[in-house]
Write a protein that binds this DNA or RNA. Structure first.
Length: 219
DNA sequence: CTCCCGATAT
DNA sequence: ATATCAGGAG
């Protein structure tokens, strides 16, 4: 487990690396953000951003998604992958918005997770990015980076990772730190080829030191 | 736990 | 060819 001092070091360094880290999914309101995050499951946000301009131009309101035949919606998001379940979830989500929430995305996380296709991670993103609530959404990047650095254990669930991060990061820094973890994971500590050689966090990184040792490099 | 799934990087 | 991508539902 990392000490408090190590966490401060990590937050400082990734802050220097990615001072302007923020949500990269194109959106102009909470509704669009929710759709974009739902679409982003197991898919790069870069690809989501290729689809959403046309999508958001065609579908403005929940009613627009409800009225279109599902085959047509599937076709509009086909390139994203997992398109059949995502199209179904979007339709169910919009139906619920109209029936239970006056057509608006709820701000409360406990309400957000009741929406089809919206789990804990998506709810955290919407609450944080759209409504400014403190939250740490643990996606594949945050999970991988936290485990490589040694902030949590390899066997920890995403919920356990989230709890650990919330405990070790001051609440007022949750949202910024969360985005910096994402950027660090996406552009530097990449899944397939982490840049340990040029990593400012190497001296506090469990996995990085292990990889270096394996290559016979003294850290 | 498995399934959903196309696009892209390695 | 295979791994991975801002996961969630059943």
């Amino acid at each position: 487990m990392q000490s408090k001092k190590n966490m401060e070091f990590i937050l400082t360094k990734i802050g220097e690396m990615f001072p302007d880290a923020e949500c990269e999914l194109n959106h102009s309101n909470p509704f669009e953000l929710t759709i974009a995050v739902l679409l982003s499951a197991q898919c790069t946000d870069a690809l989501v951003n290729k689809v959403t301009p046309d999508l958001f131009s065609k579908y403005k309101t929940p009613e627009d998604y409800i009225q279109v035949p599902i085959e047509e919606l599937e076709n509009d998001i086909r390139r994203i992958g997992l398109f059949r379940s995502k199209a179904k979830h979007i339709k169910q989500l919009c139906q619920s918005l109209v029936e239970n929430y006056g057509g608006e995305i709820p701000k409360d996380k406990s309400e957000l997770v009741k929406l089809a296709g919206v789990g804990r991670k998506t709810a955290n993103v919407v609450a944080s990015v759209a409504f400014g609530e403190p939250a740490i959404a643990v996606d594949t990047h945050v999970e991988r980076v936290s485990k490589r650095l040694g902030i949590c254990r390899w066997k920890d669930s995403v919920l356990e990772v989230e709890k650990t991060l919330m405990k070790k990061i001051p609440e007022e820094e949750w949202s910024v730190s969360h985005h910096r973890f994402i950027f660090f994971g996406r552009y530097h500590c990449k899944a397939q080829s982490p840049k340990c050689d040029e990593c400012p966090l190497l001296e506090v990184c469990r996995e990085g030191k292990k990889r270096m040792k394996k290559r016979g490099v003294f850290v």
